[in-house]
């Protein structure tokens, strides 16, 4: 797994590349929490290059969502592949995040 980051006028964007499972979730958690701790509270996680997610990846997103909610911020997600979206649906996680079908839609919303 790799993480790319960028900042635009609307969001601090983290793009996750590869696979988010129990072996890589720790590195993602460290990155996500350090970004939130640095004062960013409007985050967009770009799933466009993410091929796989397990409950370990969802756990990190939940930790992040709880943390930014307390700061009155939010986490948006974009470009989820259909099999990844299904995992969010089964977990009952879709109401927690603003989910956009594309990066452009997230930026322009």
């Amino acid at each position: 797994m790799d993480i790319k980051e960028e900042k635009n006028e609307k969001y601090f964007v983290l793009s996750i590349v590869g696979r988010l499972d129990a072996s890589t979730a720790g590195a993602f958690e460290e990155k996500l929490l350090s970004v939130i701790d640095s004062g960013e509270k409007k985050l967009l996680i770009n799933f466009g290059e993410l091929d796989y997610i397990s409950s370990s990846g969802l756990r990190v997103l939940l930790v992040g969502a709880k943390k930014v909610k307390a700061l009155e911020g939010k986490i948006a997600l974009c470009d989820l592949k259909s099999h990844i979206m299904e995992v969010f649906e089964i977990a009952g996680f879709t109401p927690i995040f603003d989910i956009y079908s594309t990066y452009e839609e997230a930026i322009n919303s």
């Binding site: 397990s54 409950s55 370990s56 969802l58 756990r59 939940l62 995992v87 089964i90 977990a91």
Partner: peptide
């Protein structure tokens, strides 16, 4: 998150 993996 507990129990979610097995639920999957």
């Amino acid at each position: 998150i507990g129990g979610l993996g097995i639920f999957f």
